[in-house]
Design a protein around this nucleic acid. Sequence first.
DNA 1: TCGGAACCGTACCGTACGGTACATGAGATT
DNA 2: AATCTCATGTACCGTACGGTACGGTTCCGA
Lengths: 207, 207
Amino acid sequence: MEPFTPRQNAVLECALQLLVAGGERALTTAGLARAANCSKESLYKWFGDRDGLLAAMITYQASKVRTPGPRESMPTLEDFSRSLAVFAEDLMGVLAGEVSLALNRLAIGQADRDGARLGALVREHGRLPIETRARALLELGRRHGYLKFSDTHEAYETLYGLIVRDSHVRMLLGEPPVGTSDDLPRRARLAIAQFFRLHGHGAQDID
Amino acid sequence: MEPFTPRQNAVLECALQLLVAGGERALTTAGLARAANCSKESLYKWFGDRDGLLAAMITYQASKVRTPGPRESMPTLEDFSRSLAVFAEDLMGVLAGEVSLALNRLAIGQADRDGARLGALVREHGRLPIETRARALLELGRRHGYLKFSDTHEAYETLYGLIVRDSHVRMLLGEPPVGTSDDLPRRARLAIAQFFRLHGHGAQDID
DNA sequence: TCGGAACCGTACCGTACGGTACATGAGATT
DNA sequence: AATCTCATGTACCGTACGGTACGGTTCCGA
């Protein structure tokens, strides 16, 4: 997407802070202008209108996350399994992040306007990178003979379901984040173990 | 929860229609009074304030759904498996329902106010009945020797994740509902098959 | 028949917010 | 130095909405 100037990035960062701190109602044009020491006129010049600002916040936040490409050398099954577990923990960490939750809440709350334009943006910028990383990992595992599946997307969705379950929606609904972070690795390992039971090398395909 | 009068139920039904049709912005006190042929004063007398109205909508909607208790006679494995598939399809049907999506969007959009009171209501009234039904089904299957698990809650969450994956959040974000309903049974059967791979009789426990 | 309670419809109020206009000032360019 | 560009800050406007007040009507019990 088109980049923003450093000044605009600073304003967007400030907007994200406001959104995280107080929800959508705290993100007013006047309040953002005051908090970011800019003028409302500049906001409208840069982002068009309020919806443009929200969209810019999403793309800006997405531009901050980088998907760590897996290093290709991954000889042992243990390493690969560990990579999957790391992915699972990263995924849960992202979904439980304050900014991610705030932006998802924002997009979901606006899903009835403009044909869910914000929702489409979140799906595109927020989920696609995750899926890309997961697909690369899965296909790497398949190439090395550690995994067995026919449809990469199906396998990815299964992995996602086993990892996330319904915790994302629960967090979106305001439930305090899951266990005190010592629970997270256990859940991640459990999910990966279950995934191997379904798509590990010895498993028979279900499709 | 305390019941409402028939008149109040009719007003709440009308409010749900407004919410489904136009999102939260379409649900104004004046608009509801006009649509339901009642006065704003009555709305405030009955429900206190706007938040009370939203909470009443959630409890009212929850009061409409009944969890069909499984008939205890379930001799064959095929019957039990079919019951699980029916549960899966029912679950997806509920989550994809217009009213459910609208109320979840509403609660998620307000998750930053009042300590996510609406979100807590949705979690309590919307998800607890589902889990209750699923737990009964799972434990029935375990009693009959068809399933093997130690923690019912864990097994339920696994089942939920395999069935729903991330489709709920995607729908909340405005993605049109999944395949043209002929895809749903296939997905349900696949999820159940995967669940049996993890917790079927012959499976070794992972925990 | 009277009186009160509940309710409808409408008018009203205060406020908050999105969006626009304008005056001022700082930096760069010619 | 003159000027152009860009941004700030403030003031302003229209509107929409939550919440309240009030007059009028219906219904029910005494």
